[in-house]
Amino acid sequence: MKPAPFEYFVPTSVEEAVELLARHGDDAKVLAGGQSLVPMMNFRLAQPAVLIDINRIVELGYIREGDSSIAIGAMTRQRVVETSPMVRDKCAILSEALANVGHQAIRNRGTMGGTLAHGDPAAEVATVLLTLGGSVTVAGPQGKRELSPEELLAGPYAAGISSDELIVEINFPILAANETHGFLEMSRRHGDFALAGVAAVLRMGEGNICERARVALCGVAPTPVRATEVENQLTGKRLDASTIQAAAELASRAVDCEDEYHASREYRTHLCQVYVRRTIQLALERWGNN
């Protein structure tokens, strides 16, 4: 099918975009990479009366390294972040997760702000943000405000931001020297949305003791979710096959989904356990090789 008619605006600054959003309210949609919005418009699942195309807001395309975090402009293409040597060096979990977002041609156009604003339950970038505990900056009629990943993911489809707000920046904490990480997911074909995915960051001490664990899952609940029981089980433990297995078994507690066409709840639950185990093992191996 073809999209329904709409009025089209191309602001060149954040200020202008925010003004347009305020003026057109719920009739308007922001157009970033269009990799989620345009399919919905082509199928007429979305019929916004007004499109505000932010592709010409040059000030929203950047990757900046700070002391403890990396700031990324909302319009930075996913592929640019994935292939950034600095990101690979300082926040490898983000590069690894991005490699699983659709296909290269999708990531060439899809943006960092777009994936977070769209808020798919299987979104890898939001899962990494939740694991690392970064933040999202939005601009609205009242100025700018900062949201934690938990606030952004308060409900499905990025419930934390309102329709007159624009995501402008995302902050990803840099991995510390005593942290190790893993990201793994299962999808039916390379590039498909994950049936289940796992992101983990472990702070390690002497003798493979896990001092702090952050583990999040995607694709198994209405939003990406922390697996807090897995985290608690890992914390303070010496990591080995049996402690990892014991923690992985608790992953099922975070699962909150129904049976659907592609996978039953039971299968997703099983995948979570297997992928939590593999991801923690991978993180531990990396720590050992360090």
């Binding site: 990799q35 399919p39 199928f43 290269q104 041609a105 999708i106 156009r109």
Partner: peptide, 22 residues
């Protein structure tokens, strides 16, 4: 027309993209 099949892939400013999603 939803980005899945790839038949419409072109180079847009030198980069491979779906022409059905632009």
């Amino acid at each position: 027309e939803h980005g899945v099949c790839g038949a419409c892939t072109i180079l847009f400013d030198g980069v491979a993209q779906r022409s059905c999603l632009i």
